[in-house]
């Protein structure tokens, strides 16, 4: 059924001879990715660096990253899932419909060649961006690419990794997992964690108007989320913890200015490959850290009488 087959970025640096970026534009969005991890570095088993590697870019348009690529494959918008599914069939030498394949924007010959390159790589990697994970099909597009990577291991070594952005989103995901068992979309209202993306994920909660307050930490949903979600944040008490004025802080009922993590507050950031990096602040800040603010809010709330009786029914098991 697939899964997730990944590695730390140093493995890519030292071993990868085939690098595929899919639905992402690292040249502009992750400018150090080529030079530090993927394309340029001379690695232990790819001693000539760029010369020992092939880069393929799959995207709906020729972005700045295409210049760095050896091969650019232009997929039609919202045809990624079909394209990946065809590749899954081709690596197993299963039949596909030539005419329908052409609707992906790529010919069967191009895709067959791509499938061969994937299988022949010594160590291949897919890096995928929001062009894949946030377009029609969303989580199933990511699942498709992760499954393709897993299946390629029947022929060679292959891994896949999301190109995550926006500060420490990986760190949030990692810590949610060890405290609740789930990476995101967690509901703690019943006193224990429950998980259901689509039901409990932030954007869905806001669009449906399921919450009666919003606490925003290290994010600016007011700049990125659809209008109905923003409207809900305006409607209910919204509290923002942020060092700067943001789109969200402008619509918030309360904005608490905090120290900048990594510059004036210590902590840990998890890199996109889940390697923890210590943050050693060079400066001091007159503002409290996010952690301190949350701790103080928590202490104040803890003094209030509990909302729940001491023994609470759980959702029965089936």
């Amino acid at each position: 059924m697939g899964g997730k087959v990944s590695c730390t970025l140093g493995e890519v640096k030292n071993r990868a001879d085939l690098i595929v970026y899919w639905g992402g534009n690292p040249a502009e969005c992750h400018p150090r990715h080529f030079t530090k991890y993927s394309l340029m570095p001379k690695g232990r088993f790819v001693p000539n660096g760029r010369k020992d590697r092939t880069m393929i870019l799959v995207d709906i348009r020729e972005t700045a990253s295409a210049k760095a690529a050896d091969i650019f494959l232009q997929v039609r918008p919202a045809k990624d899932f079909e394209m990946i599914t065809v590749l899954r069939a081709l690596i197993k030498e299963q039949p596909v419909d030539t005419k329908l394949v052409a609707e992906t924007g790529l010919t069967l010959e191009e895709l067959t060649d791509f499938a061969q390159r994937l299988k022949k790589a010594k160590f291949g990697v897919f890096f995928f961006g929001m062009g894949l994970s946030m377009t029609r099909g969303k989580h199933m597009n990511s699942a498709a690419l992760l499954t393709l990577a897993a299946e390629l291991n029947a022929f060679t070594k292959f891994v896949a990794m999301p190109m995550r952005g926006h500060g420490n989103v990986t760190g949030g995901d990692v810590i949610m997992r060890w405290t609740t068992g789930y990476p995101f979309g967690v509901n703690l209202a019943r006193g224990y964690p429950r998980f259901n993306p689509g039901e409990y994920s932030t954007i869905d909660l806001l669009i449906r108007g399921d919450t009666d307050a919003v606490l925003v930490l290290g994010a600016d949903p007011g700049a990125t989320m659809p209008q109905p979600a923003i409207d809900h944040m305006v409607r209910v008490p919204t509290i923002v913890l942020d060092p700067k004025v943001t789109h969200t802080s402008k619509i918030a009922r309360v904005h608490i200015t905090t120290a900048v993590t990594g510059i004036s507050a210590p902590g840990t950031a998890y890199r996109m490959d889940e390697i923890p990096l210590p943050l050693k602040p060079p400066l001091k800040s007159p503002y409290p850290t996010d952690e301190e603010v949350i701790r103080r809010i928590y202490q104040a709330v803890a003094k209030k009488p509990p909302l729940m009786p001491p023994v609470r029914p759980k959702v029965p098991r089936v």
Binding site: E82, V96, T104
Partner: peptide, 8 residues
């Protein structure tokens, strides 16, 4: 609208 991975 069929997927390309079905055989007629």
């Amino acid at each position: 609208k069929m997927m390309p991975t079905f055989s007629a």
